[in-house]
Every structure is written in structure tokens, then in C-alpha cells.
Amino acid sequence: MAKTLREYYGEALVRYGKENDKIIVLDADVSGSTRSALFRDAFPDRHLNVGIAEANMTGMAAGLASVGMIPFVNTFAAFVTSCGLLAARTFGSYSKLPIKLVGTYSGMSDAFDGPSHHALDDIAIMRAQPNFEVIVPCDAASTDWAVRHCVETEKPIYLRMSRDVFPNIYPLDESFEIGKGKVVKEGTDVTVFACGLMVGHALTAAELLEKEGISVRVADMFSIKPIDRDLIFRCAAETKAIVTAEEHSVIGGLSSAVSEVLAQEGFPVPMEFVGINDTHGECGPYKELQAKYGFDASAVANKIRRVLDKKEKNGK
């Protein structure tokens, strides 16, 4: 059985925890869900379960970081970027203390728990915090790299995790670099900038459309902040049509990040956004939520067709 993204995360914590005794892991009574429990079992002395107190947890992490520890803060994305935000902005963003906030169950991946537990605004919130890096891994290899990057980088970082199983995109020894997106499939007609769950969906959509003679480039924008400006320019210039795809609101997330880059440089190309359209979701099976709220492979395919229509009209 394939593992969930959060399971890969917990395993990575243990892996790097063996090498570095400055790593300390905090959890707010959801270590079974975040999978920080794996770290607890391996290093009980370096796992602090603070109970259901996310604000206090994030503040404690700031204190730990201030004396040289490397604290990983674990709870649901919806809560760490709300209850934890005051401490995150005061001590992480403003004071540059290198706290690592890990928001699991992001997007609608905590499907049946409903909108109170979904996180569709976390990227927007954390992207607006100066000095924070925002990373959205999509599989085992990128999750492992992201954890290592958190350990090796003296910066505050928001790491977005999911409850669900995502397809593996990369070989396990793939190398990544912060601020550099990765083209995971070449194509010439349109570029899909995707992150997280949507990388796999974009590849599926690309495969589908290849049969219709449409050549789709897919770029994994795991580094939401800093964003890969060069890759965005290059793809805009080469394919002249862009679709962004994220399991997040279309306000403030990847779609905004890509749009901002192109708008600032006066380089507009036809664009379409795959994401949640300024609404809350509901509870239900994850796959059905993806279909209803428009963030599955067929939603990506539809937006690609639409953006190509625009591109064609522009060309006339």
C-alpha cells in the first residue's frame, strides 16, 4: 500500500533527527495524524507534546529556535496558520527566528472532517509573511528534501503536508533547490504550474490531452516562496499560455504568485487558474470533493482547453 505524504514526512524527521540532535519536534495532540509520532517513538526526549495549544506551541518553538535548536511545529495546516500565526509573524517573520511550521491535512485532504478542518488559505497567509519560505512538496522525494532543507536552512519555513497518498513523481534520490521549479514534463503549447496534489493531476491531464494533439508542459512549483521567476518567464515566452493548479483558494496562492511575476514584468499571456474559487468546501469523499470543487485532472484539462482557446483568439 502506498504511503501518505505525512508518513514520508514523519520518516524524514526520524532520518534527519538521527544526524542532528538540535532537531526538536513539537505537536499539539495530533502526532498520530501529523506522523510526528514517528519522531516521538525514536527520540522521546526531543518530542514535546504541548496539548491542544497551537499558539503556545508556536511561541515555544520561537524560544527553542532563539537558543539554537531546530524546532518543527506540527499540527493541521488550518490551525498552525491561524492560532499559530501571531507567534509565526512576530518571531518567525519579523524576528527571523528559524521556526519550521508544518501544516498537515492541507487543502481538502481532511475530507470528511469538513471545511472547519480544510486549509484553502494557508499558502496565501504564509506567503504574505516576510522572510518565510513556503514549500509545497508533492511526493516522497520532495518531502524528504523539504525536511532536509528545513534542517539546513536558518530561516523560518512553512511546509505544507497532506493527509493523503500522492503518486511519486521523482526518483528518491532526485535533487531539488529552493526557488527553482522543476519541469517534470516537457511540452510546447501550454505550461501548467502546479504544486502538491496537482502535480500528479497535471501530468494525468497532460497525458489525456496528448491524445488530442495538445503538448502540455508541467512544472512543479514546490517552492512557492521564493518563486522561480526565470522559469515562469521562460515558460510564458515559450508556450505563451499558462495554467496554474493548486489545492488552495485561487486568491493569494500559486496563481497569485505566478500572476504577480508576469504582471510586474509587463508580460501577460493567457492564463487560467485551477483552484478553489473563493468558497469553502464541505465534507465528503476526497475524490468527489476534488471533482465538485474543480481540482482534479479533468479540471486541469478543462482549463488547459480554455486557455488554449484564449491563446488562439489572441493569435488572430
Binding site: I24, D45, R46, L48, A55, N56, M57, T58, G59, M60, A61, A62, G63, L64, A65, S66, V67, G68, M69, P71, L86, A87, T90, F91
Partner: peptide, 15 residues
């Protein structure tokens, strides 16, 4: 927030 931070710092120093 200060007591949370102080608590974290104290634990970190001790560790």
C-alpha cells in the same frame, strides 16, 4: 506570548 517563548528557550538551553 513571552512565557511560551521563555519556556521554549529554557527547555532548549537545558537540552
Amino acid at each position: 506570548l513571552g512565557l511560551s517563548v521563555g519556556l521554549g528557550a529554557a527547555i532548549g538551553l537545558q537540552k
